[in-house]
Design a protein around this nucleic acid. Structure first.
Lengths: 139, 139
DNA sequence: TTATTTGCAAACGGTTTGCCGATTA
DNA sequence: TAATCGGCAAACCGTTTGCAAATAA
C-alpha cells in the first residue's frame, strides 16, 4: 500500500480499483519521470490506461479533484488552460521560459520572509505560491 | 491621451474607438475600485458597455490579449477558470482566503532573494509570480 | 484605398455532470 | 444491502475564430 492509499484510508476515501491504479501512477510519477514531472490529466490518463485501459478520463478528473480536496495532490496552473498535478509536498518552482522545464526548490529564507510580510499586512499565512521564470545561464 | 493609449501608439497598435474605451476603463479601474481591482473579462465588458454598449465581448477578449502581448496588462489566474487583468506594474498579491479580497505589496528583500535563488539554480530571473494566501488576524 | 478590426455566432478545449449499471464497505 | 462510484456522452463555460461588413491610417 503506497502513501496515497494510506492517506485515503485515513480520510475515509473509498479505495476502488481505479483509484488504486491512479494512486500507483502518481506515486511512481516522480521516480520514473524525475522532479520535472507535473502531469496534466490527459497525461495521467495515458499512463493509467497502460495499466487498465477501461478507466475513463472522467474518472481521472474526478479522482484528481478528490485527491486534491483530501490534500494529497496540489494543482498547478503554470500556464492556464491545462491544470497539472503533483503529490503535495511543499516546494516552489522555477520554470525555464525556453524549454518549459520545471525545477523544484525550497528556501527557508523566503518562507520566513513570506510569513513576515503577511503578518505585516495583517494576515496569517495559510498558503503561498511562488513561481520563478528564468532562462538558463550559459557557461 | 492616457498612458495606455500612449503605449499603443509607441508600439504601433492601431487605436480604434473600442480600444480607446477599453483603455479608459482600465486606466480608471484602480482609481475607481481601489487596489483590489483585478477585473475579469466579463467585468471589463460590463464596465465598457456602460460607455459604449455596442462593444462585443469578443473585442474585449481580443483587446485584452493584445494589451497583454504589448506588455501593457498582466494576466492573473489566481484561481483558474477566469483570467483577471490589471495594468502591468510589478508587485505581488496577498489573497484573503475568506473574502477573496486582494492586497498588493512589494518587497525588496524578497525580490533580491528570488534573483539569488534563480542564479544558484543556474538561471537568470526573467519573471516571477508570488501569491500569498492568508486569513485576517483578528484584533 | 487597403490592411486591420469588429460583431456575430459558431467552434473549441478543458472540465463537469446526469444517468444508471457496477462496485465497495 | 446501502451508499458510493465509474463509464458514457452530453452539457458547461471561458475563450477563440471564420466570415463579411465597417473602419483606421
Amino acid at each position: 500500500m503506497n502513501a496515497i492509499e494510506e492517506k485515503c484510508q485515513k480520510k475515509g476515501v473509498r479505495l476502488t480499483d481505479q483509484r488504486k491504479t491512479i494512486a500507483k501512477v502518481l506515486s511512481e510519477s516522480k521516480a520514473v519521470y524525475g522532479s520535472k514531472d507535473h502531469p496534466d490529466v490527459d497525461e495521467l490518463h495515458k499512463r493509467v490506461s497502460s495499466i487498465d485501459d477501461k478507466i475513463s478520463i472522467a474518472t481521472v478528473y474526478r479522482t484528481v479533484k478528490l485527491f486534491e480536496e483530501a490534500g494529497i495532490l496540489v494543482k498547478h496552473d503554470f500556464k492556464a488552460g491545462k491544470a497539472r498535478y503533483e503529490i503535495n509536498d511543499d516546494h516552489n518552482h522555477l520554470i525555464d521560459i525556453n524549454s518549459g522545464e520545471i525545477v523544484e526548490f525550497v528556501d527557508k529564507d523566503i518562507e520566513e520572509l513570506q510569513k513576515k510580510i503577511a503578518k505585516k499586512l495583517g494576515y496569517n499565512l495559510v498558503d503561498h505560491k511562488l513561481e520563478l521564470y528564468g532562462s538558463k545561464i550559459k557557461k
